[in-house]
């Protein structure tokens, strides 16, 4: 976007792909510039990734290092027969889908409403974006406190307005616990969508909107036929990005419910962490991880495709 604006400003048309390489372009320069980052990434990303694929075929338990053995597909066999794995799969899907779709919807509504405000209030938008940078562990503890069965303000409030009769054990009932973690994440992530969608709204040419108004389009029609098509790209990209982020999400769930009660809120990242660092079964955890890497890879390809389409 910045590129488009800049291009307009400078009235220069440039096309990066057809650009003539300059004399100074040499693989050597590229190597010098890229080497530090790539070396570091090899050490902390690529090597561990390859090692994880190898570990997936091993039985490696941290507490019994002498029993390490190559077991080929045994880990995967156990995994697919393990009911918990499928529970986690389902949880991750429900959690991710609900969180992203509700945050997206809320973000869309709020961004549009704030866009209607006079310009001088724009500065206040910063305040409603703050939840986005609050550390996950703080969000987790804060919502654990607000959802507490004994002193939680949410129970108190709901009872006060007669929605519930008795205090609910929010974090100790399977479906309520899932709802609780979803609410905490929506609070945390809606600002991201507000931010992205606001940027998208700003890029809609004013004259198109005005033309729609002059032709007598209702607000809904304007939204449906002007705003939404312009926003489509940004909505798809930010949703995909957040789907990926949520599958990997760890701190809020870990602190709020620890994946409980009885695995009802255990999602992929929490599950892998627990197998690896609470049960110490590194081989099995890697096998579960590998499956998720493939699932995420599919999503990443969709993400990259939609990025390229947008440009």
């Amino acid at each position: 976007m910045a590129k488009k604006i800049l291009a307009k400003l400078l009235k220069i048309k440039f096309n990066k792909e057809n650009r003539e390489p300059s004399v100074h372009d040499s693989p050597k320069t590229a190597a010098i510039l890229l080497a530090p980052a790539l070396l570091l990434m090899t050490f902390i990303i690529f090597y561990p990734l390859i090692r994880a694929f190898i570990l997936a075929f091993y039985n490696l338990n941290l507490t019994q290092p002498n029993n390490t053995a190559f077991v080929f597909l045994e880990n995967f066999r156990i995994m697919f027969r393990d009911e918990t794995f499928w529970v986690v799969f389902k949880n991750t899907f429900i959690f991710t889908f609900t969180t992203v779709s509700i945050s997206l919807l809320l973000g869309l509504i709020i961004a549009i409403v704030f866009d209607q405000l006079p310009k001088k209030y724009a500065g206040y938008r910063g305040i409603i974006l703050v939840p986005w940078v609050i550390p996950g562990i703080v969000v987790g503890y804060l919502f654990m406190y607000m959802f507490d069965v004994e002193v939680g303000i949410i129970n108190f409030f709901l009872q006060k307005i007669h929605i519930i009769e008795n205090y609910l054990p929010w974090l100790m009932r399977d479906k309520l616990a899932m709802a609780s973690i979803i609410i905490a994440h929506i609070w945390n992530q809606t600002p991201f969508f507000i931010l992205m969608i606001t940027a998208g709204l700003k890029a809609i040419p004013r004259d198109v909107q005005e033309a729609a108004y002059v032709e007598g389009a209702s607000r809904w029609q304007e939204f449906r036929h002007v705003t939404l098509p312009f926003l489509k790209g940004i909505l798809v990209i930010s949703s995909l990005l957040m789907v990926i982020r949520n599958i990997n999400n760890f701190p809020i769930i870990f602190t709020m419910t620890g994946g409980g009660p009885a695995n009802a809120t255990t999602t992929a990242a929490v599950y892998i962490y627990k197998i690896a660092f609470e049960q110490y079964q590194l081989g099995y955890a890697s096998a579960v991880g590998v499956i998720w890497v493939f699932a995420l890879l599919a999503l990443s390809i969709a993400y990259i495709k939609s990025l390229q389409k947008d440009f």
Binding site: R173, D174, A264
Partner: peptide, 21 residues
């Protein structure tokens, strides 16, 4: 023994399942 912690954690989880589902 070697397996106690693991087994006991799973059992505690199941008892939680009894009271939360």
């Amino acid at each position: 023994g070697a397996n106690y912690t693991n087994a006991a954690t799973i059992l505690a989880n199941s008892m939680q399942e009894v009271i939360t589902t």
